[in-house]
């Protein structure tokens, strides 16, 4: 069984995000970068599949040299090798362009299963996996909370509103992993040491078979016009110089009529 994981590097969940001066990106200095947490479930699941069935695991990432560090984390957890899609032409890719790049790797690697995180925690688009399945002509199962491989098929429990849905899909397929699928392991020190020697192959535009106009800013069909910060929180209301009972009445009234929370 060959399992390929598409991983994205995102800012740490606790990073304080500041919008760049031009309003079209974020200030990247002094940010700690991590593997998107949902992708950790994908990495863990890939390793568990290999541990059970033998085979090979590959992690694929699109991004600048910065992302290699997160790829090494996946390798330290136990993924066998990596493919780093890096080319100046890829800069500014939207989800579709990114999926095209990833698909070019997948067509060459020919895995049985492609695992992605449910969504990246930075832009929350959750689009690349669906595009990927479409380009490859493969089935896609979204938000998998339990996975069982049976021969040439997979039985998945999906998180849906109010419960779970159980589906069966043929392989190869694209799946996105949700919280609860597993508990990702920590990279051990021997794992970190081994990861340094594992192969990370570079994959540039020339290898993708795509045109320069398919990817990057040129190929992006969705263009980001700008980012806006969250509005400041409105100041709280303070009740003073009233009897406590009257204050409570006022607070309850406002919670009911203004905030509409009770």
């Amino acid at each position: 069984m060959k399992v390929l994981v598409c991983m994205k590097q995102t800012p740490d969940t606790e990073a304080s995000i500041k919008i760049a001066a031009d309003g079209k990106g974020i200030e990247e200095q002094n940010i700690k970068w991590i593997m998107s947490p949902y992708d950790e479930y994908a990495v863990e699941e890939a390793i568990r599949i290999k541990e059970k069935q033998t085979g090979e695991t590959v992690v694929v990432t699109v991004g600048t040299d910065r992302v290699v560090e997160s790829m090494r984390t996946a390798l330290a957890m136990g993924i066998d090798r990596g493919v780093h899609c890096v080319d100046p032409a890829f800069l500014g890719s939207d989800a579709l362009a990114t999926a095209k790049i990833l698909a070019s790797v997948i067509k060459t690697e020919n895995p049985d299963v492609v695992l992605c995180g449910r969504q990246a925690i930075d832009l929350d688009q959750a689009q690349a996996p669906a595009y990927l399945a479409e380009i490859l002509g493969w089935p896609q199962v979204y938000s998998v909370a339990k996975l069982e491989l049976k021969g040439n098929a997979a039985v998945c429990n999906r998180r849906i509103e109010g419960g779970e849905e159980i589906v069966e899909t043929s392989l190869p397929c694209v799946m996105t992993c949700d919280k609860g699928l597993n508990e990702p392991r920590y990279a051990s020190l021997p794992g970190i040491m081994k990861a340094k020697k594992k192969e990370i192959k570079k994959w540039a535009l020339a290898q993708t078979g795509l045109a320069e106009t398919d990817v990057g800013t040129a190929g992006a069909k969705v263009k980001t016009l700008g980012y806006l910060p969250l509005p400041d929180r409105p100041p709280g209301k303070v009740f003073k110089e009233m009897e406590t009972a009257d204050m409570v009445k006022q607070v309850v009234k406002l919670l009911r009529e203004e905030a509409k929370v009770i």
């Binding site: 090494r72 330290a76 920590y186 990279a187 051990s188 020190l189 970190i192 040491m193 340094k196």
Partner: peptide
């Protein structure tokens, strides 16, 4: 470097 990376793992834990 690998020790610093390992300490990062411990921080995460």
């Amino acid at each position: 470097k690998e020790i610093l990376e390992f300490v990062d793992t411990v921080r995460k834990f």
